[in-house]
Design a protein around this nucleic acid. Structure first.
Length: 271
DNA sequence: AGCGGAACCTGTCGGC
DNA sequence: TGCCGACAGGTTCCGC
């Protein structure tokens, strides 16, 4: 569900509300989500102060007192909700943190793909420690990308989804970025010129900045912490638009499958 | 090493 | 109405 703009929106809202609160206790309603020893997780988290909340790629990192971190990945359908303690439990509540200020922070997840990792060493946290640079990092340059994609015959769309190359892009924004850049998603990553790669980088930053401005894309599940929707879905140009007309050239938008996932493109604008 | 496909789990929607 | 397959914003694992 959530890609970088959605995760960042959630992090902004959590960061506004949570720091300074203490976790009084924690209930785990679906064990598979919390990695490792559940009892240890509950014991360590208890009475810890929430100091800071940050994003890295699509991960949410909660800094707790005593140098512990909770690293959360929302996967497809995870979300956070902040509610008064009195709110009735809902069907898809999976992890609940009861806070010192009479609120509870609920992790809700229909499909239960999401993960919680508790660690005292962020470098050791698998997944997190393999991430490539954030899209705005100065490490992301056409020259570096060109070098990194040598010997990679995978389609450029698939390369954009690889979190080791750039961290944070997902299925919606990969399609939107390549449309904006005028690049066909099936082109082999290693066949793109440095010049084309710099166009893709520019489109990536433009689209992500815009999506951040609109608090992300709410198509089905994604909601903000306050349950409001993002609004970038109103600005999508190809994702989910199969059989509609391209806004630039009126050709039919086409849906194809790459690596078991949908890709949308305009065959005329994206050569 | 790099790549494609299956698996993880639940819900919704469209077709017959 | 009911059943069945396809599909959904992501990642990891396994075999070639």
């Amino acid at each position: 569900m959530p890609e970088l703009p959605e995760v960042q929106t959630i992090v902004n809202e959590l960061a506004e509300n949570l720091p300074g609160s203490t976790i009084s206790s924690c209930r785990i309603l679906r064990e598979s989500i919390v990695q490792g020893d559940q009892t240890r997780f509950r014991r360590i988290v208890k009475n810890k102060l929430i100091q800071k909340i940050e994003r890295r790629g699509k991960y949410i990192i909660f800094s707790l007192s005593s140098d512990f971190w909770i690293v959360v990945h929302l996967r497809m359908t995870g979300k956070f909700v902040l509610q008064p303690n009195s709110r009735q439990p809902q069907k898809h509540d999976r992890v609940v943190f009861y806070l010192s200020n009479h609120q509870k922070l609920i992790y809700s997840d229909v499909r239960c793909f999401g993960t919680f990792d508790l660690t005292d060493d962020l470098q050791e946290c698998r997944g997190l420690n393999q991430l490539g640079p954030d899209p705005w990092s100065e490490e992301v340059t056409a020259a570096r990308l060109k070098k990194e994609l040598t010997n990679r015959k995978i389609p450029i769309k698939t390369a954009l989804l690889d979190q080791k190359i750039i961290a944070g892009l997902g299925n919606i924004y990969a399609s939107e970025i390549l449309f904006d850049a005028g690049v066909n998603p099936i082109i082999a990553a290693n066949s793109l010129s440095e010049r084309k790669l710099s166009v893709i980088i520019r489109s990536m930053r433009k689209i992500l900045n815009l999506a951040l401005q609109y608090n992300g894309t709410s198509i089905s599940d994604y909601r903000r912490v306050d349950d409001k929707q993002g609004t970038f879905q109103n600005f999508l140009k190809v994702y989910g638009k199969a059989d509609q007309k391209c806004l630039n050239c009126s050709s039919q938008i086409v849906k194809i499958t790459q690596n078991q996932r949908s890709t949308f493109l305009c065959p005329t604008c994206q050569k």
